[in-house]
Design a protein around this nucleic acid. Structure first.
Length: 575
DNA sequence: GCCGTTTTCGGCCCGACTGTTTTCAGTCG
């Protein structure tokens, strides 16, 4: 009987809960320790069970003797008596109150003690009965704020997918840039770091006329609602309840503000500690001497990193995943650039479930300046997507040849996205595959297998003589479907030795491999390919999102096959 | 509970805002 493996997310969630419960109890400092350990583990590139197996838990930053012991207990026993005891001490539902904006541990406990509320539903009823305003330290306003916070809590529980909002955010940024009174403008926050999901959008501007710019911002046609409008800070709601905040920054402090608002929090905290070592302090207003307040750096972000003795850290790396240490040692990767892609490896047409013809897709790819486009429609096994039979694949070859004869400045290659069946076989005959330029194999069915079975399935496909790339290797859909059980270390090892590519699928719902898995793959010597999985000419723009994932995964151009010319791509595939 | 080119003990990131207060605690990013 297979033992259930504890995931990093589960361990992180347990540590987050301990942090919250300790905070509710009023314990000092420990909550921060648990919180910090949880954050690190949440974004760890390796399975924590593996690390525990090697006895190296305490090498994880923020994990010491005590937390390591608790992690081991969870892995071995599946539960944690320490957490159970904490839960007994703290009435159910109190922690839930902390999910509300404006409610922290103190207020949560106070509301529970005074009103007997346990949980958000209870609190809402009490607030509507005007019970909250009677409490010491509360008033009518804070009661209304609680009611509003509950409405927000109900409405926006999810984050937004980067790929679906980046374009709109950049449009707003562009409009601001074109405004006469705007001197500098830049996206900040998680969108600048290109996290796969984004909570809200932060835009920084410097201007000589804050009021005019704020007014312009709040009257943008995209603004469905103005949350607040002021000279320092304004906030609007666009699209499906996405909050966009504008912050007006003094031009001399722009670099410091940009650094600060780009985050991540964990990254910034570490930087501030380094600043302290120099007897400086770092804030959104600048890097300044603790005594006397002399300014060390503030106008440009680069100057702040330089002053701290660090190489400049690209925003995509600022997650406190070792980038500060690498910047200190001069070992940061020379990240793949957004302009380095030469073509797309995976796109669909009307032959299967795409919405454009081969010619239309080719022209759109050419207009992006690419050298090649691989058309890889679905195979017959995916009936729902009108997958192609062997005959149809041969007919498609004729069409592709015609398009190549007609269009200049781009080469269309003929590929297929074939299904990897349950037993690891590819659902297209070798006699057909042999004539194709590129073969992607993807799992599209029977996701619920054991890790062992799924790993065998994928590894069998990797060793198929015609297979070139595994498409969306883990099958996850962000915020929708968990990755299927798969031993990635084995997959990486086999892909590297079999000379098979793993895909970074840049479709906004996928981002598969993910940033942390890219980094693991790189470390295992795997060659990766970035592709859009476009089903529409407009989707070709997703390629840059894939580059963002790759950058967050510390990848250099050399480990991404489609930074290479068509000639070099073909040479690699020949091997 | 973690961590260490000033520490194995004594610190632990910074500043602003909000709502409720005559000086501040709590919360947020």
């Amino acid at each position: 009987m297979a033992e259930k493996k504890v995931s990093n997310a589960e361990i992180a969630s347990i540590l987050f809960e301990i942090a919250d419960l300790l905070e509710l109890k009023g314990v000092a400092f420990k909550p921060r320790a648990y919180h910090s350990a949880a954050q690190t583990i949440e974004s760890l590139g390796e399975d924590i069970t593996e690390i525990a197996g090697r006895g190296e838990l305490e090498e994880i930053s923020g994990v010491g003797e005590s937390i390591a012991e608790k992690i081991r207990t969870v892995i071995e026993k599946g539960n944690l008596p320490y957490l159970d005891r904490l839960r007994e001490d703290m009435p159910e539902g109190v922690r839930e109150l902390m999910e509300l904006e404006g409610i922290g541990p103190k207020k949560a406990l106070f509301l529970h003690t005074k009103l007997g509320v346990s949980g958000i539903e209870d609190l809402e009823a009490a607030a509507k009965k005007e019970k909250v305003r009677e409490l010491e330290g509360f008033g009518e306003t804070s009661e209304q704020n609680i009611i509003d916070a509950i409405a927000v809590w109900r409405e926006r529980h999810e984050r937004f997918l980067l790929g679906y909002i980046l374009h709109d955010a950049e449009e707003i940024e562009r409009k601001l840039r074109e405004h006469d009174a705007v001197k500098k403008v830049c996206l900040a926050g998680s969108i600048r770091r290109r996290r796969e999901t984004v909570g809200d959008v932060d835009i920084l501007v410097s201007t000589g006329d804050p009021e005019a710019v704020s007014k312009f911002f709040c009257s943008l046609p995209e603004a469905r609602r103005v949350v607040m409008e002021g000279p320092k800070r304004s906030s609007i709601v666009v699209g499906e309840n996405l909050h966009v905040d504008l912050r007006v920054i003094d031009g001399e402090q722009f670099g410091a503000a940009l650094q600060y608002f780009t985050g991540s929090r964990a990254h910034n905290i570490k930087l501030r500690k380094i600043a302290l070592d120099h007897d400086w302090k770092l804030s959104e207003y600048g890097l300044v001497a603790r005594e006397g307040g002399d300014i060390v750096a503030r106008e440009h972000e680069e100057e702040i990193y330089e002053a701290l003795g660090l190489a400049f850290i690209p925003p995509e790396l600022r997650e406190n995943r070792g980038e500060i240490e690498a910047a200190d040692e001069g070992t940061l990767p020379d990240l793949i650039g957004y302009g380095e892609m030469r073509g797309d490896l995976h796109a669909h047409t009307r032959w299967s479930d795409g919405s454009h013809t081969v010619k239309e897709m080719a022209e759109a790819a050419r207009d992006r300046g690419w050298e090649y486009l691989i058309i890889s429609d679905h195979s017959a096994g995916l009936a729902i997507a009108h997958g192609l039979s062997g005959d149809e694949i041969r007919k498609q070859a004729n069409e592709i040849e015609k398009v190549n004869n007609k269009i200049e400045d781009i080469t269309v290659l003929h590929g297929i996205e074939a299904n990897i069946d349950k037993d690891g076989t590819i659902d297209v005959k070798k006699s057909v595959l042999r004539d194709l330029d590129f073969v992607v194999g993807s799992v599209h069915s029977a996701f619920k297998m054991t890790e062992k079975e799924m790993t065998e399935r994928v590894v069998t496909a990797i060793h198929h003589e015609h297979l070139d790339m595994i498409g969306h290797p883990t099958g996850r859909l962000i915020q929708k479907r968990e990755p299927h059980a798969l031993d990635l270390d084995t997959v990486f090892e086999e892909a590297a030795s079999a000379h098979v590519l793993l895909e970074i699928n840049a479709f906004p719902t996928r981002f598969d491999l993910s940033d942390v898995n890219c980094r693991r793959a790189r470390d295992a010597g795997v060659m990766l390919g970035i592709s859009t999985d476009a089903h529409d000419t407009d989707h070709l723009r997703f390629l840059d999102l894939g580059v963002a994932v790759a950058r967050r995964g510390w990848l250099e151009a050399g480990t991404v096959i489609n930074t290479r010319s068509l000639e070099d791509l073909r040479a690699w595939l020949e091997k």
